[in-house]
Design a protein around this nucleic acid. Structure first.
Lengths: 337, 337
DNA sequence: CTGTTAGCGCATTCAC
DNA sequence: GTGAATGCGCTAACAG
């Protein structure tokens, strides 16, 4: 096994053509004769030439790499976004670095600082729940590199935002429950300092208002929407027999709540109809009748990366926001027994 | 916001000290006086110097980066391994690149080729299900860079393997069911060309043999262990009323099978006791009584990366295998109603 | 269209 | 212990 290190100079020497021409040919420049280009490419292949990206990076001060920073990859939604990002990135010849903040501001700052050191050409980010100061992102921007926010909105200047229309999705989800005849719909809400959860709560409130249902504050439960929270909230639901519907702002809490309710003899959806924000296929396994708000995660990833890359390539930075529609998936109850 | 580009030469000029000394000081070389070192570090901080990693990489032909290649990050097991890898890597000053093969050999080959181009210093890999040819990995090895296999064994030369003791874990899992009184234990098995699934099946077989239970081939179901497979196999279990136990070689199939069985009125674990290979916390939510083989994913990630990094740093490549113990988690049934 | 020249920023010989 | 000199491999400006 030979430790290859064929350089453009090797090709240059063998062919008697200057290395700069070799470089141009290898970069498919149009300032090289088709003939010599073919000659060079042929010889390059023959010698097993592989471009030294490190040298190229240093020279151009670009890395052909973008980073995606998000809370955690184990969540199906984020994993799917990543798949979309990678597809576009690969098509356009970019590498993708995946970074997990675990919703910690400190980790997020370290990550950004590391991405600056490593000269990534652009960043896609879903900011951590703790993030309210954007100096680390501004310092990345000072290198004239673009940032695209996805999933979690952020109003930093000169950035693109890509989100789903949380308000509308929540409105339709709640309206669906109302149309099924629910009169007392509980809402699992996230912390209201997070813009996204605020939007979702607003959609819920607006649907009630439109259908002239009086708001009952005691039906709104605010938490971190963890599995434990789901069980705690399920107990509160059991304590209030009026409740006949549940709209959960996130699937994790909804799933564990459903499990708990079922173990207590509650029938889903007959006794309590549930709609949850969701992308994880596991939900359909747990409760086949569950109606879910399906977020276009893959599309979001594709959109986000293609916008980021086009910004990298024409250095245009503008404030722009995109709202993607989500889809309400209504499954027929399949527990026929 | 200033586009920083302070170099060692800037520091050199301001201080009247040669740039090579500055470089040495910045690398904490012991061939420079403590005094001048302090002076330089102080001035570096003052000027906001940040090492240009691109240049450093080119010069040293190292990147301080390792890659982890695995089928998919959305599986909880792999996500947890990654967390372990990242912890060690961060401690030792390495970056981690995460790559998903989606169990495709073609994608895996492209990934390795890309990692070669990007000069990563070492690779951690759980090979794709389709991989049976190792030329791509050999070509990575030809650059004298180490490879560590985790989770899925591979007998490539000069490599380290880190796996859990699948045979023993399966043996204990099956024995647990036997001790609970099961007489007819079904086994969800993976494809037998995968070493890992072979080992798990062997553990099942050996436990039966030890307890003098006659092997019934019709109780062994071989599949890809997907959700759909789980439901198909659950139907087969229903068709065979003798079955009173199930040992599943992987959690995905077990979870959907349990769901289906429960929807058909089967009680878990009273009618059929189940043990599944598992790390995903969702399983406990779905079936709180489920006994699971808990793989030490985080430990595996830490072990794998620390071995890889030590190989990178002392260039020692030896054949070594490590077996980690897994833990059988027996939960008391909590559906008391 | 091709060759000449000149670095990108750093780390590492070799002198002293 | 420090400075001077060199080049990692590639690309880009400038000629011609």
């Amino acid at each position: 096994m030979n430790q290859k290190k064929v350089t453009i100079h090797d090709i240059s020497r063998v062919l008697g053509i200057d290395s700069s021409t070799v470089s141009r040919a290898l970069n498919d420049s149009d300032r090289v004769t088709k003939k010599t280009k073919e000659l060079i490419l042929q010889k390059a292949k023959e010698l097993g030439y592989q471009r030294n990206i490190l040298a190229s990076n240093l020279r151009t001060n670009k890395t052909q790499t973008i980073a995606i920073v998000l809370p955690r990859i184990s969540r199906y939604f984020f994993a799917t976004v990543i798949a979309g990002v990678e597809q576009i990135a690969q098509e356009k010849g970019y590498n993708v670095i995946i970074c997990q903040s675990f919703d910690s501001f400190e980790r997020e700052k370290k990550i950004i600082s590391n991405l600056i050191s490593n000269r990534v050409d652009g960043i896609l980010i879903s900011i951590s729940m703790e993030t309210s100061n954007y100096d680390h992102l501004k310092s990345y921007q000072s290198f004239k590199n673009p940032i695209v926010f996805f999933d979690r909105p952020c109003n930093l200047e000169n950035c693109v935002n890509i989100n789903i229309d949380n308000f509308r999705a929540s409105f339709l989800a709640t309206e669906h429950l109302l149309q099924k005849g629910c009169k007392h719909i509980a809402h699992f809400s996230g912390k209201q300092n997070i813009e996204l959860y605020k939007q979702r709560k607003n959609g819920y409130l607006d649907a009630l208002k439109k259908h002239q249902i009086e708001l009952d504050e005691s039906l709104i439960f605010e938490s971190n929407l963890s599995e434990e929270d789901g069980i705690l909230m399920a107990k509160k639901i059991l304590a209030n027999p009026k409740i006949d519907g549940l709209y959960s702002s996130n699937d994790t809490a909804a799933i564990s709540a459903i499990q708990y309710l079922k173990s207590e003899g509650i029938k889903i959806p007959e006794d309590i109809a549930v709609v949850g924000f969701n992308n994880d296929p596991i939900a359909a396994v747990i409760e086949p009748s569950l109606t879910t708000v399906n977020q276009p995660a893959f599309e979001m990833g594709k959109k986000a990366s293609s916008l980021l890359i086009s910004q990298i390539e024409d250095k245009s930075t503008v404030n722009q926001s995109f709202l993607l529609e989500s889809e309400l998936i209504i499954r027929e109850s399949s527990n026929k027994k």
